[in-house]
Nucleic acid binder design. Structure first.
Lengths: 222, 222
DNA sequence: ACCTGAACACCGTTCAAGT
DNA sequence: ACCTGAACACCGTTCAAGT
Protein backbone atom coordinates (compact mmCIF):
# COMPACT_ATOMS: atom_id res chain seq x y z
CA UNK A 1 0.00 0.00 0.00
CA UNK A 2 2.74 2.42 0.97
CA UNK A 3 4.89 1.77 -2.13
CA UNK A 4 2.80 0.95 -5.22
CA UNK A 5 5.45 -0.83 -7.30
CA UNK A 6 3.40 -1.17 -10.47
CA UNK A 7 2.96 2.54 -11.12
CA UNK A 8 3.38 3.75 -14.71
CA UNK A 9 7.02 4.17 -13.75
CA UNK A 10 8.77 6.20 -16.45
CA UNK A 11 11.57 3.59 -16.17
CA UNK A 12 14.90 5.21 -15.69
CA UNK A 13 17.31 4.21 -18.47
CA UNK A 14 19.97 1.69 -17.39
CA UNK A 15 23.50 2.89 -16.92
CA UNK A 16 25.06 1.73 -20.18
CA UNK A 17 22.51 3.06 -22.67
CA UNK A 18 24.51 6.11 -23.67
CA UNK A 19 27.96 6.72 -25.16
CA UNK A 20 29.51 9.40 -27.36
CA UNK A 21 29.44 7.01 -30.32
CA UNK A 22 25.75 6.17 -29.83
CA UNK A 23 24.88 9.85 -29.64
CA UNK A 24 26.86 10.73 -32.77
CA UNK A 25 25.31 7.79 -34.58
CA UNK A 26 21.79 8.85 -33.63
CA UNK A 27 22.55 12.43 -34.66
CA UNK A 28 23.75 11.33 -38.11
CA UNK A 29 20.61 9.24 -38.53
CA UNK A 30 18.46 12.26 -37.66
CA UNK A 31 20.44 14.53 -40.01
CA UNK A 32 20.23 12.13 -42.94
CA UNK A 33 16.50 11.60 -42.45
CA UNK A 34 15.20 15.05 -41.53
CA UNK A 35 18.06 17.52 -41.94
CA UNK A 36 20.28 19.40 -39.54
CA UNK A 37 17.45 21.42 -38.00
CA UNK A 38 15.87 18.17 -36.80
CA UNK A 39 18.85 17.59 -34.51
CA UNK A 40 17.64 18.72 -31.14
CA UNK A 41 18.83 17.70 -27.70
CA UNK A 42 15.29 16.67 -26.85
CA UNK A 43 14.64 14.72 -30.06
CA UNK A 44 18.08 13.12 -29.85
CA UNK A 45 17.23 11.97 -26.33
CA UNK A 46 13.89 10.58 -27.51
CA UNK A 47 15.59 8.62 -30.27
CA UNK A 48 18.00 7.17 -27.71
CA UNK A 49 15.31 6.31 -25.15
CA UNK A 50 16.75 8.69 -22.60
CA UNK A 51 15.99 12.08 -21.03
CA UNK A 52 17.44 15.23 -22.58
CA UNK A 53 19.83 16.04 -19.76
CA UNK A 54 21.61 12.71 -20.06
CA UNK A 55 23.41 13.84 -23.19
CA UNK A 56 25.33 16.42 -21.20
CA UNK A 57 27.19 13.65 -19.39
CA UNK A 58 28.91 12.79 -22.68
CA UNK A 59 29.19 16.15 -24.45
CA UNK A 60 29.80 19.65 -23.10
CA UNK A 61 27.05 21.12 -25.31
CA UNK A 62 25.23 20.73 -28.61
CA UNK A 63 28.10 22.25 -30.62
CA UNK A 64 30.41 19.53 -29.29
CA UNK A 65 28.00 16.90 -30.59
CA UNK A 66 27.87 18.46 -34.06
CA UNK A 67 31.65 18.74 -34.10
CA UNK A 68 31.93 15.03 -33.34
CA UNK A 69 29.42 14.40 -36.14
CA UNK A 70 31.57 16.22 -38.73
CA UNK A 71 34.68 14.43 -37.48
CA UNK A 72 32.94 11.09 -37.91
CA UNK A 73 31.64 11.94 -41.39
CA UNK A 74 34.98 13.31 -42.59
CA UNK A 75 36.67 10.14 -41.35
CA UNK A 76 34.62 8.24 -43.91
CA UNK A 77 36.58 9.87 -46.73
CA UNK A 78 37.48 7.21 -49.28
CA UNK A 79 41.09 7.38 -50.51
CA UNK A 80 41.34 6.27 -54.13
CA UNK A 81 43.47 3.41 -55.37
CA UNK A 82 47.12 4.56 -55.09
CA UNK A 83 48.00 2.65 -58.26
CA UNK A 84 46.05 5.08 -60.45
CA UNK A 85 48.16 7.37 -62.59
CA UNK A 86 48.71 10.78 -61.02
CA UNK A 87 46.04 12.79 -62.79
CA UNK A 88 43.39 10.06 -62.53
CA UNK A 89 44.23 9.72 -58.82
CA UNK A 90 43.90 13.47 -58.32
CA UNK A 91 40.50 13.52 -60.00
CA UNK A 92 39.44 10.56 -57.90
CA UNK A 93 40.35 12.37 -54.69
CA UNK A 94 38.17 15.30 -55.71
CA UNK A 95 35.36 12.93 -56.64
CA UNK A 96 35.51 11.27 -53.23
CA UNK A 97 35.50 14.68 -51.56
CA UNK A 98 32.45 15.71 -53.62
CA UNK A 99 30.59 12.46 -52.89
CA UNK A 100 31.21 12.87 -49.17
CA UNK A 101 29.63 16.32 -49.20
CA UNK A 102 26.60 15.44 -51.28
CA UNK A 103 25.72 12.36 -49.26
CA UNK A 104 25.87 14.43 -46.05
CA UNK A 105 25.13 18.03 -47.04
CA UNK A 106 24.83 18.96 -43.36
CA UNK A 107 28.64 19.04 -43.04
CA UNK A 108 28.59 22.28 -44.97
CA UNK A 109 26.14 23.86 -42.55
CA UNK A 110 27.95 22.92 -39.35
CA UNK A 111 30.25 25.69 -38.19
CA UNK A 112 33.62 24.11 -37.61
CA UNK A 113 35.93 26.44 -35.69
CA UNK A 114 38.92 27.94 -37.53
CA UNK A 115 40.07 25.02 -39.68
CA UNK A 116 37.15 22.61 -39.96
CA UNK A 117 37.22 21.47 -43.57
CA UNK A 118 40.99 21.77 -43.21
CA UNK A 119 41.05 18.40 -41.47
CA UNK A 120 40.57 16.50 -44.68
CA UNK A 121 42.70 19.06 -46.48
CA UNK A 122 45.63 18.47 -44.14
CA UNK A 123 45.49 14.73 -44.61
CA UNK A 124 45.21 15.23 -48.35
CA UNK A 125 48.07 17.67 -48.61
CA UNK A 126 51.08 15.42 -48.43
CA UNK A 127 49.80 12.89 -50.92
CA UNK A 128 48.53 15.49 -53.34
CA UNK A 129 51.69 17.58 -53.22
CA UNK A 130 53.71 14.43 -53.82
CA UNK A 131 51.71 13.64 -56.97
CA UNK A 132 51.92 17.20 -58.22
CA UNK A 133 55.68 17.27 -57.64
CA UNK A 134 55.94 14.11 -59.72
CA UNK A 135 54.04 15.91 -62.47
CA UNK A 136 56.80 18.58 -62.34
CA UNK A 137 54.42 21.24 -61.03
CA UNK A 138 56.22 23.97 -59.06
CA UNK A 139 55.33 24.62 -55.42
CA UNK A 140 53.38 27.80 -55.97
CA UNK A 141 51.24 26.26 -58.71
CA UNK A 142 50.67 23.15 -56.59
CA UNK A 143 49.34 25.14 -53.65
CA UNK A 144 47.23 27.39 -55.84
CA UNK A 145 45.85 24.44 -57.75
CA UNK A 146 44.85 22.51 -54.64
CA UNK A 147 43.22 25.61 -53.12
CA UNK A 148 41.31 26.18 -56.35
CA UNK A 149 40.15 22.57 -56.57
CA UNK A 150 38.95 22.57 -52.97
CA UNK A 151 36.97 25.74 -53.51
CA UNK A 152 35.44 24.41 -56.71
CA UNK A 153 34.39 21.17 -55.03
CA UNK A 154 32.98 23.13 -52.10
CA UNK A 155 30.96 25.30 -54.48
CA UNK A 156 29.66 22.24 -56.35
CA UNK A 157 28.62 20.68 -53.06
CA UNK A 158 26.93 23.86 -51.86
CA UNK A 159 24.87 24.16 -55.01
CA UNK A 160 24.13 20.45 -55.33
CA UNK A 161 21.17 20.17 -52.93
CA UNK A 162 19.49 23.15 -54.61
CA UNK A 163 20.10 21.93 -58.16
CA UNK A 164 19.48 18.27 -57.46
CA UNK A 165 15.83 18.51 -58.48
CA UNK A 166 16.91 19.62 -61.95
CA UNK A 167 18.85 16.40 -62.50
CA UNK A 168 15.90 14.30 -61.47
CA UNK A 169 13.33 16.05 -63.64
CA UNK A 170 13.81 14.75 -67.21
CA UNK A 171 11.79 17.61 -68.64
CA UNK A 172 13.64 20.38 -66.82
CA UNK A 173 16.10 21.34 -69.54
CA UNK A 174 13.54 21.11 -72.32
CA UNK A 175 11.39 23.56 -70.38
CA UNK A 176 14.34 25.92 -69.92
CA UNK A 177 15.13 25.67 -73.62
CA UNK A 178 11.58 26.58 -74.60
CA UNK A 179 11.58 29.42 -72.09
CA UNK A 180 14.81 30.84 -73.50
CA UNK A 181 13.58 30.35 -77.05
CA UNK A 182 10.50 32.41 -76.27
CA UNK A 183 12.65 35.39 -75.28
CA UNK A 184 12.77 38.21 -77.82
CA UNK A 185 15.89 37.61 -79.89
CA UNK A 186 16.67 41.34 -80.07
CA UNK A 187 16.97 41.73 -76.29
CA UNK A 188 18.43 38.34 -75.44
CA UNK A 189 20.36 37.38 -78.55
CA UNK A 190 22.97 35.25 -76.78
CA UNK A 191 20.56 33.18 -74.68
CA UNK A 192 18.29 32.83 -77.68
CA UNK A 193 21.14 31.57 -79.82
CA UNK A 194 22.05 28.78 -77.40
CA UNK A 195 18.63 27.17 -77.83
CA UNK A 196 19.39 25.81 -81.31
CA UNK A 197 21.72 23.11 -79.98
CA UNK A 198 20.85 23.42 -76.31
CA UNK A 199 23.44 21.64 -74.15
CA UNK A 200 22.27 20.06 -70.92
CA UNK A 201 24.39 19.50 -67.83
CA UNK A 202 23.71 17.39 -64.79
CA UNK A 203 25.42 18.48 -61.57
CA UNK A 204 27.94 15.72 -62.13
CA UNK A 205 28.56 16.89 -65.69
CA UNK A 206 29.39 20.33 -64.39
CA UNK A 207 31.71 18.80 -61.84
CA UNK A 208 33.50 16.88 -64.59
CA UNK A 209 33.70 19.94 -66.84
CA UNK A 210 35.17 22.10 -64.06
CA UNK A 211 37.72 19.47 -63.09
CA UNK A 212 38.84 19.29 -66.73
CA UNK A 213 39.10 23.06 -66.98
CA UNK A 214 41.11 23.48 -63.77
CA UNK A 215 43.43 20.57 -64.48
CA UNK A 216 43.89 21.50 -68.15
CA UNK A 217 47.18 23.25 -67.40
CA UNK A 218 48.69 20.01 -66.15
CA UNK A 219 50.78 17.92 -68.54
CA UNK A 220 48.64 15.19 -70.04
CA UNK A 221 49.38 11.82 -68.52
CA UNK A 222 50.67 9.31 -71.10
CA UNK B 1 -9.01 59.36 -10.32
CA UNK B 2 -10.70 56.85 -12.59
CA UNK B 3 -8.17 57.10 -15.46
CA UNK B 4 -4.59 57.72 -14.23
CA UNK B 5 -3.16 59.26 -17.40
CA UNK B 6 0.48 59.41 -16.32
CA UNK B 7 1.06 55.69 -15.81
CA UNK B 8 4.36 54.23 -17.07
CA UNK B 9 2.50 53.73 -20.35
CA UNK B 10 4.54 51.45 -22.65
CA UNK B 11 3.64 53.93 -25.43
CA UNK B 12 2.14 52.17 -28.39
CA UNK B 13 4.20 52.77 -31.53
CA UNK B 14 2.58 55.19 -34.00
CA UNK B 15 1.08 53.85 -37.15
CA UNK B 16 3.86 54.63 -39.64
CA UNK B 17 6.87 53.24 -37.76
CA UNK B 18 7.07 49.99 -39.69
CA UNK B 19 7.49 49.04 -43.35
CA UNK B 20 9.00 46.08 -45.19
CA UNK B 21 12.02 48.23 -46.13
CA UNK B 22 12.61 49.34 -42.53
CA UNK B 23 12.45 45.74 -41.33
CA UNK B 24 14.85 44.49 -44.02
CA UNK B 25 17.20 47.37 -43.26
CA UNK B 26 17.21 46.61 -39.54
CA UNK B 27 17.76 42.92 -40.25
CA UNK B 28 20.80 43.66 -42.43
CA UNK B 29 22.20 45.90 -39.72
CA UNK B 30 21.78 43.09 -37.18
CA UNK B 31 23.35 40.53 -39.52
CA UNK B 32 26.37 42.67 -40.33
CA UNK B 33 26.97 43.50 -36.66
CA UNK B 34 26.24 40.20 -34.89
CA UNK B 35 25.68 37.54 -37.53
CA UNK B 36 22.63 35.73 -38.83
CA UNK B 37 21.82 34.03 -35.53
CA UNK B 38 21.30 37.44 -33.96
CA UNK B 39 18.32 38.03 -36.24
CA UNK B 40 15.35 37.26 -34.08
CA UNK B 41 11.80 38.50 -34.36
CA UNK B 42 12.05 39.81 -30.82
CA UNK B 43 15.41 41.52 -31.25
CA UNK B 44 14.35 42.92 -34.61
CA UNK B 45 11.28 44.39 -32.94
CA UNK B 46 13.43 45.88 -30.16
CA UNK B 47 15.73 47.51 -32.72
CA UNK B 48 12.70 49.01 -34.45
CA UNK B 49 11.06 50.24 -31.25
CA UNK B 50 8.06 48.01 -31.75
CA UNK B 51 6.56 44.83 -30.31
CA UNK B 52 7.42 41.46 -31.86
CA UNK B 53 4.00 40.74 -33.30
CA UNK B 54 3.99 43.93 -35.37
CA UNK B 55 6.43 42.43 -37.85
CA UNK B 56 3.81 39.91 -38.93
CA UNK B 57 1.75 42.67 -40.45
CA UNK B 58 4.46 43.15 -43.07
CA UNK B 59 5.86 39.64 -43.53
CA UNK B 60 4.21 36.24 -43.42
CA UNK B 61 7.00 34.75 -41.29
CA UNK B 62 10.69 34.99 -40.49
CA UNK B 63 11.72 33.15 -43.65
CA UNK B 64 9.98 35.79 -45.73
CA UNK B 65 12.03 38.47 -44.00
CA UNK B 66 15.31 36.64 -44.69
CA UNK B 67 14.28 36.12 -48.29
CA UNK B 68 13.69 39.85 -48.66
CA UNK B 69 17.11 40.40 -47.08
CA UNK B 70 18.88 38.26 -49.69
CA UNK B 71 16.93 39.93 -52.47
CA UNK B 72 18.02 43.33 -51.20
CA UNK B 73 21.67 42.28 -50.84
CA UNK B 74 21.79 40.60 -54.26
CA UNK B 75 20.33 43.75 -55.80
CA UNK B 76 23.46 45.57 -54.71
CA UNK B 77 25.50 43.58 -57.22
CA UNK B 78 27.85 45.98 -59.03
CA UNK B 79 27.97 45.48 -62.78
CA UNK B 80 31.43 46.26 -64.14
CA UNK B 81 32.20 48.89 -66.78
CA UNK B 82 30.82 47.53 -70.09
CA UNK B 83 33.72 49.12 -71.98
CA UNK B 84 36.20 46.63 -70.52
CA UNK B 85 37.50 44.04 -72.96
CA UNK B 86 35.63 40.74 -72.76
CA UNK B 87 37.96 38.77 -70.53
CA UNK B 88 38.63 41.67 -68.15
CA UNK B 89 34.88 42.25 -67.94
CA UNK B 90 34.26 38.60 -67.16
CA UNK B 91 36.85 38.61 -64.39
CA UNK B 92 35.34 41.81 -63.02
CA UNK B 93 31.88 40.20 -62.83
CA UNK B 94 33.29 37.35 -60.79
CA UNK B 95 35.14 39.80 -58.56
CA UNK B 96 31.95 41.73 -57.89
CA UNK B 97 30.15 38.48 -57.12
CA UNK B 98 32.92 37.48 -54.71
CA UNK B 99 32.95 40.88 -52.98
CA UNK B 100 29.19 40.74 -52.51
CA UNK B 101 29.45 37.42 -50.72
CA UNK B 102 32.37 38.30 -48.47
CA UNK B 103 30.87 41.60 -47.33
CA UNK B 104 27.63 39.79 -46.40
CA UNK B 105 28.54 36.16 -45.66
CA UNK B 106 25.06 35.57 -44.29
CA UNK B 107 23.67 35.28 -47.85
CA UNK B 108 25.34 31.90 -48.05
CA UNK B 109 23.61 30.68 -44.89
CA UNK B 110 20.11 31.77 -45.83
CA UNK B 111 18.18 28.96 -47.45
CA UNK B 112 16.77 30.35 -50.67
CA UNK B 113 14.12 28.06 -52.13
CA UNK B 114 14.91 26.22 -55.39
CA UNK B 115 16.77 28.90 -57.35
CA UNK B 116 17.97 31.48 -54.85
CA UNK B 117 21.48 32.27 -55.98
CA UNK B 118 20.09 31.80 -59.47
CA UNK B 119 18.63 35.29 -59.31
CA UNK B 120 21.98 36.93 -59.93
CA UNK B 121 22.92 34.07 -62.24
CA UNK B 122 19.89 34.68 -64.42
CA UNK B 123 20.59 38.38 -64.72
CA UNK B 124 24.24 37.59 -65.47
CA UNK B 125 23.52 34.97 -68.09
CA UNK B 126 22.62 37.04 -71.12
CA UNK B 127 25.53 39.44 -70.79
CA UNK B 128 28.05 36.72 -70.02
CA UNK B 129 26.90 34.44 -72.85
CA UNK B 130 27.09 37.41 -75.22
CA UNK B 131 30.71 38.06 -74.24
CA UNK B 132 31.64 34.38 -74.50
CA UNK B 133 30.00 34.13 -77.93
CA UNK B 134 32.11 37.08 -79.03
CA UNK B 135 35.17 35.18 -77.84
CA UNK B 136 34.07 32.37 -80.20
CA UNK B 137 33.33 29.97 -77.33
CA UNK B 138 30.77 27.30 -78.27
CA UNK B 139 27.50 27.02 -76.34
CA UNK B 140 28.41 23.96 -74.35
CA UNK B 141 31.73 25.39 -73.21
CA UNK B 142 30.06 28.68 -72.34
CA UNK B 143 27.51 27.05 -70.07
CA UNK B 144 30.06 24.75 -68.47
CA UNK B 145 32.47 27.62 -67.94
CA UNK B 146 29.90 29.85 -66.27
CA UNK B 147 28.72 27.01 -64.04
CA UNK B 148 32.32 26.29 -63.07
CA UNK B 149 33.09 29.94 -62.32
CA UNK B 150 30.00 30.31 -60.16
CA UNK B 151 30.89 27.24 -58.15
CA UNK B 152 34.46 28.38 -57.70
CA UNK B 153 33.37 31.81 -56.50
CA UNK B 154 30.87 30.20 -54.15
CA UNK B 155 33.57 27.97 -52.72
CA UNK B 156 35.92 30.93 -52.25
CA UNK B 157 33.16 32.83 -50.47
CA UNK B 158 32.30 29.86 -48.24
CA UNK B 159 35.88 29.43 -47.12
CA UNK B 160 36.63 33.15 -46.83
CA UNK B 161 35.19 33.79 -43.35
CA UNK B 162 37.09 30.80 -41.96
CA UNK B 163 40.39 31.68 -43.63
CA UNK B 164 40.13 35.42 -43.15
CA UNK B 165 42.13 35.31 -39.92
CA UNK B 166 45.08 33.85 -41.84
CA UNK B 167 45.24 36.88 -44.11
CA UNK B 168 45.24 39.26 -41.19
CA UNK B 169 47.95 37.49 -39.18
CA UNK B 170 51.29 38.46 -40.77
CA UNK B 171 53.05 35.61 -38.99
CA UNK B 172 50.61 32.90 -40.02
CA UNK B 173 52.43 31.57 -43.05
CA UNK B 174 55.85 31.72 -41.43
CA UNK B 175 54.47 29.59 -38.60
CA UNK B 176 53.01 27.11 -41.08
CA UNK B 177 56.33 26.97 -42.92
CA UNK B 178 58.23 26.21 -39.72
CA UNK B 179 55.65 23.61 -38.77
CA UNK B 180 55.97 21.87 -42.13
CA UNK B 181 59.76 22.12 -42.01
CA UNK B 182 59.75 20.36 -38.65
CA UNK B 183 57.98 17.34 -40.19
CA UNK B 184 60.20 14.29 -40.76
CA UNK B 185 61.37 14.51 -44.37
CA UNK B 186 61.03 10.75 -44.85
CA UNK B 187 57.31 10.69 -44.07
CA UNK B 188 56.31 14.04 -45.52
CA UNK B 189 58.81 14.59 -48.32
CA UNK B 190 56.51 16.70 -50.48
CA UNK B 191 55.32 19.07 -47.76
CA UNK B 192 58.86 19.31 -46.47
CA UNK B 193 60.17 20.20 -49.90
CA UNK B 194 57.77 23.12 -50.33
CA UNK B 195 59.27 24.90 -47.33
CA UNK B 196 62.48 25.89 -49.14
CA UNK B 197 60.70 28.54 -51.22
CA UNK B 198 57.42 28.60 -49.35
CA UNK B 199 54.75 30.41 -51.36
CA UNK B 200 52.07 32.33 -49.47
CA UNK B 201 48.56 33.03 -50.68
CA UNK B 202 45.98 35.42 -49.34
CA UNK B 203 42.36 34.49 -49.98
CA UNK B 204 42.34 37.05 -52.77
CA UNK B 205 45.51 35.54 -54.27
CA UNK B 206 43.80 32.17 -54.40
CA UNK B 207 40.79 33.76 -56.04
CA UNK B 208 43.03 35.33 -58.68
CA UNK B 209 44.93 32.08 -59.26
CA UNK B 210 41.73 30.08 -59.70
CA UNK B 211 40.24 32.62 -62.08
CA UNK B 212 43.39 32.43 -64.20
CA UNK B 213 43.31 28.64 -64.20
CA UNK B 214 39.66 28.37 -65.18
CA UNK B 215 39.85 31.06 -67.86
CA UNK B 216 43.15 29.78 -69.25
CA UNK B 217 41.40 27.91 -72.03
CA UNK B 218 39.93 31.12 -73.41
CA UNK B 219 41.73 32.83 -76.29
CA UNK B 220 43.96 35.60 -74.93
CA UNK B 221 42.47 39.03 -75.53
CA UNK B 222 44.74 41.16 -77.73
C1' DA C 1 -4.84 48.60 -41.82
C1' DC C 2 -1.64 48.37 -38.45
C1' DC C 3 0.03 47.47 -33.72
C1' DT C 4 -0.29 44.47 -29.61
C1' DG C 5 -0.84 41.06 -25.01
C1' DA C 6 -1.39 36.59 -23.71
C1' DA C 7 -0.50 32.11 -24.59
C1' DC C 8 1.41 27.85 -26.78
C1' DA C 9 4.78 24.64 -28.21
C1' DC C 10 9.13 24.51 -28.86
C1' DC C 11 14.51 25.47 -27.94
C1' DG C 12 19.56 24.96 -25.12
C1' DT C 13 21.25 24.82 -20.72
C1' DT C 14 22.03 25.34 -15.24
C1' DC C 15 21.57 23.41 -10.99
C1' DA C 16 20.59 20.36 -7.56
C1' DA C 17 19.28 16.04 -6.85
C1' DG C 18 18.79 11.04 -7.28
C1' DT C 19 21.09 6.04 -8.09
C1' DA D 1 29.92 8.02 -12.95
C1' DC D 2 25.83 8.39 -15.13
C1' DC D 3 20.90 9.55 -15.54
C1' DT D 4 17.26 12.93 -14.32
C1' DG D 5 13.21 16.76 -12.82
C1' DA D 6 12.41 21.35 -12.32
C1' DA D 7 13.31 25.67 -13.80
C1' DC D 8 15.13 29.58 -16.60
C1' DA D 9 15.77 32.43 -20.49
C1' DC D 10 15.15 32.24 -24.82
C1' DC D 11 12.75 31.01 -29.66
C1' DG D 12 8.64 31.44 -33.76
C1' DT D 13 3.97 31.85 -34.17
C1' DT D 14 -1.50 31.76 -33.38
C1' DC D 15 -5.34 34.05 -31.94
C1' DA D 16 -8.18 37.47 -30.34
C1' DA D 17 -8.21 41.91 -29.26
C1' DG D 18 -7.34 46.89 -29.34
C1' DT D 19 -6.87 51.61 -32.20
Amino acid sequence: MSSPRHKTTPTRAPRGTLSPEAIVHAAIELIDRDGLDAVTIRRLADQLGVRPMSLYTHFRDKDAILLAVTAELLSRFQWPDPDLDDIAWLRQVMHAYFELFITHPAILQINTPSDGVGEVEARMSEQIYARLARLRVDHRTAIGLLATLIRFVLGCATLYPVRRAWDEDPQHWERVRQQWARLPAEVYPAMHATTVDFPTFTQRDVFEFGLDAILASLPRSP
